[in-house]
């Protein structure tokens, strides 16, 4: 419960934060602190310097970018949950943000922190992947945009360089598509045992396309590629058949919430439900 000693710096701006990332010893950015501080308290992380980006103005909030929404890295889960633009154009994101942890967590945790942390059991990485979001990061000499599909690399591992910060997340609008997020968990404030996010476009009788993201089914958030393919262009009554393959290509962990096999089972059952729910919307 008591972290190892560290220095603390307040970043005045994104540029300042990046400069501090280059000039201080063994630094870590501090946003909402709700992933980093628990790690430090368990002494699983021992950064020598914390660079607090929480006070940088202009890094939070949602704006309409035409085809997409531009979401500042510091936007809190609570605000995503309640933001009118997000609710209108990316309702899946708004809804899922409301299921993160508990109210205290949602008031502190940020989307940038959640993505940078890269926990495959977290909700927002899966949502970003499902929505084909792009992550805008800034380093000492350039800004680059990384597709969510390329961003999550492994167990708590992302494409971020040590001297880069996420500044924005661009989320394509989902228009009239149906969507759902089923977060299966033992307790209301738990991480997902398994989570299933969907965005489904359907015409009369057939499914045009389905995007399906999986939480806690492997080292990174995943897409249920086999099911997505099977659903593309399929009749609505083929959902059961297509979702029976939802766990293909996953490597779900075994832990106290569920064994790997039970996760696979849940994944199949819940993907069917999630697709049906999206179709009913």
């Amino acid at each position: 419960m008591i972290p190892a000693a560290f220095d603390y710096e307040v970043a005045e701006s994104v540029e300042h934060a990046i400069e501090l990332l280059g000039s201080t010893e063994d630094p870590k950015l501090l946003a909402g602190g709700h992933s980093l501080l628990p790690f430090m308290k368990f002494r699983l992380a021992r950064p020598a310097t914390l660079i607090d980006i929480g006070r940088i103005s202009g890094l939070s909030g949602v704006s309409d970018g035409g085809e997409h929404l531009a979401i500042g890295a510091l936007t809190r889960h609570h605000d995503l949950n309640h933001d009118p633009l997000v609710k209108e154009h990316c309702p899946l994101l708004a809804y899922a943000a409301g299921l993160v942890g508990d109210s205290q967590v949602r008031h502190r945790g940020t989307i940038g922190g959640s993505l940078a942390h890269g926990d495959s059991a977290a909700d927002l990485p899966t949502i970003a992947l499902t929505l084909d979001a792009e992550i805008v990061v800034r380093g000492p000499d350039r800004e680059r945009t990384i597709a969510a599909t390329d961003f999550f690399r492994g167990f708590y591992e992302t494409a971020l360089e040590p001297n880069e910060a996420i500044v924005e997340v661009r989320v394509p609008k989902t228009g009239a598509a149906g969507w759902s997020y089923i977060k299966f968990r033992r307790r209301a404030l738990d991480w997902a045992t398994v989570g299933i996010a969907t965005v489904v476009e359907a015409g009369n009788g057939t499914i045009e396309s389905a995007r399906i993201g999986l939480t806690n089914m492997g080292q990174t958030p995943l897409r249920a590629a086999a099911t997505e393919q099977a659903l593309a262009g399929a009749a609505r009554d083929r959902v059961a058949e297509a979702t029976a393959r939802a766990d293909e290509g996953t490597e779900p962990p075994s832990d106290v919430s569920a064994s790997s096999d039970f996760r696979r089972h849940l994944c199949r059952v819940l993907t069917a439900r999630a697709v049906e729910e999206a179709l009913s919307r």
Partner: peptide, 11 residues
């Protein structure tokens, strides 16, 4: 749950 209740089984 907002904006629409999911069929989430455990929640």
């Amino acid at each position: 749950a907002a904006p629409a209740p999911s069929t989430s089984t455990a929640s």
